[in-house]
Design a protein around this nucleic acid. Structure first.
Lengths: 111, 111
DNA sequence: GAATATACATATTAGTTATAGGTATGACAA
DNA sequence: TTGTCATACCTATAACTAATATGTATATTC
């Protein structure tokens, strides 16, 4: 059976996670808040989405994780690996291409 | 059971279809080609996606359809209704909001 | 008369993401 | 000291969209 391609606008949570973790090491809970803040509330991804995404990306070698104890509490800090940054670049290219296409359609009166 | 919200970047095919049919009456096959052309091949939605979308939007009163005979062949021309245009406006707002949020994250070094 | 382009249709599959749970600690207030 | 709230993590399931496969039929072109 031929494998179905992902929906053409999906993968955005992956893009967002990789983008932020390429710049700054963060732990999950912090990342959830950062997405809201940086996007000015435009994007809100629940913890469930982010934690699954982090585990999945780590298992694919896109992220590396280290445990840090802080005030008796354990935090798992993630950052993008070289592989993750390469994947990020692909996703950024995809985003440019597709969002450009959508903007072209939106802008075009086709009159 | 609580209804799940659609994925935050979904609804783009709907946006594209409504946008084009708000400007110009078209039949399905023509629409499929128009999407490719106007987006410079960045977006390619298969016939299956477009025809289902057309039927679904029509059933919701977002599109109106009329049958036209052309060279012994039947074509179903669609255009956006007032309701469809209202929905389009919502989707355009959503697109601006969400794509803006993504661009903010992409652009922000968070350094 | 065979192949290709046009034109429409829909059921199924696949994949992502949303949601709904769950555990556990620290801080602060009543 | 008890209760509540914020922090911090985790996972299984549900829901939804869109991709794919597949089908019909006519017109055109070679």
């Amino acid at each position: 059976m031929a494998k179905t391609n992902p929906a053409f606008m999906s993968g955005v949570p992956e893009l967002v996670v990789l983008r932020l973790l390429a710049s700054k090491e963060m732990y999950g809970y912090e990342l959830v808040a950062a997405i809201k803040v940086v996007s000015a509330e435009a994007i809100s991804l629940a913890e469930g989405v982010i934690y699954s995404s982090l585990h999945s990306l780590e298992s694919k070698g896109m992220l590396r994780c280290r445990q840090i104890q802080s005030a008796g509490r354990t935090r798992y800090y993630y950052r993008a690996t070289a592989k993750g940054k390469k994947r990020l670049q692909e996703l950024l290219n995809e985003w440019d291409r597709v969002s450009g296409g959508i903007n072209a359609i939106i802008g075009d009166s086709y009159a």
